[in-house]
Design a binder for these strands. Sequence first.
DNA 1: AGTCGGTTGTGACATTTAGCACAATTTACA
DNA 2: TGTAAATTGTGCTAAATGTCACAACCGACT
Lengths: 209, 209
Amino acid sequence: MNEFEILFEALKITEPILQKEILTHGVLEKYPKGVFVVEQDKYIKWLAIVIQGSVRVWQEEEDREILLYYVNPLETCSLSLAATFKDYKSLVHARTENNTTLIKIPVRFVKQWSFEYQSWFRFTTQSFITSYEDLLVSYKSLAFKRIGERLYDYLIYSKELSENKIHISHKALANELGTTREVISRLLKQMEEEGRLKLHFKMIELINS
Amino acid sequence: MNEFEILFEALKITEPILQKEILTHGVLEKYPKGVFVVEQDKYIKWLAIVIQGSVRVWQEEEDREILLYYVNPLETCSLSLAATFKDYKSLVHARTENNTTLIKIPVRFVKQWSFEYQSWFRFTTQSFITSYEDLLVSYKSLAFKRIGERLYDYLIYSKELSENKIHISHKALANELGTTREVISRLLKQMEEEGRLKLHFKMIELINS
DNA sequence: AGTCGGTTGTGACATTTAGCACAATTTACA
DNA sequence: TGTAAATTGTGCTAAATGTCACAACCGACT
């Protein structure tokens, strides 16, 4: 099954005309890790849907950054989606996290299809809603939780995606959470002393409670 | 011009069939200040569009709260909108700020119309996008700015909506920004000493720089 | 084995934010 | 006019977070 077929199946795109449109105007691209897909303050020209790999989306200011979310297979960056409805500059950065396969759709089609094809409408709408809810949860967490708790939440969440061993540096964790490396190092050390995890070089092992 | 006509004009709802649908299924309601329109963890049954007045939308945890946004005339709460596409419990609270006139649409129609009527599609889409962007800006601000700056930003923003005199208590400001009253009082006092504003009882006067 | 760049640990200290206590002030309204 | 409730000011203290400096450590590569 090729990438387009994967897309059609996952998004339940059954309309033959829409399939044809996507095949005609969509562009398949493969990127290595670390490529910028979207840059803050630049105009967005394509809607990218991740087929394989993942894309990290974040905001930055001076030398700090904070994670917004990851775009995983068969999801799209809801901000690119927003941009397709209203020409504007990106408020965020986005970069591939792994080798990543994308299908890119020129923005001018995205809106039009939403009104014409039920399945595409479902896809765009769902993407928006999910992203909005996620952001809302993050916002609340940022407003009311202390860094220690947000850090642990992050680790638990990462664990669910893979296993008990999370491969990430303290500096990278700081960038996910919008703080600095020393803060993370100290909090992790403290959690290690509490027996909640075990620290290794560029790896954190969670201990099942 | 009655409330429905105002709605049609503002949202550029020209389709006669849609107008008829809205007149048939929409309900006009007038509330005094302080009525809960949506409550956290409750199911959403209506999409409310503000015609007059305004609705405050916020999140809370224990005895803290933080503002998300205000719904102003001819806007809708994007979270109610999200809920119409996916039955779920509200993540937020919403309460009228003034005497407020709403048009309420049962959620089951909202999604259907989006796909059937261009103007309704434009309305729902725009609402989502605007809310999403606003939340994103708030998120960044929360992540990187200190309370003092967020406070001043808030005052400047309020000033633009009305005049130099902002009628609000320190406690209410704390609730807008997710902090406590003492913090706000001190920061305001400091800004007064710096000549940036003048404090009165339940009112803050901004000084043009 | 040696070098180098990135990573981690940590002490000392500064700043920001929060929490408690209580007095003073203002308003609403009985 | 008097009283109660809400609002504001502020000293003191504590906790959370950020900053700087520097040493120790790890792993990739020659």
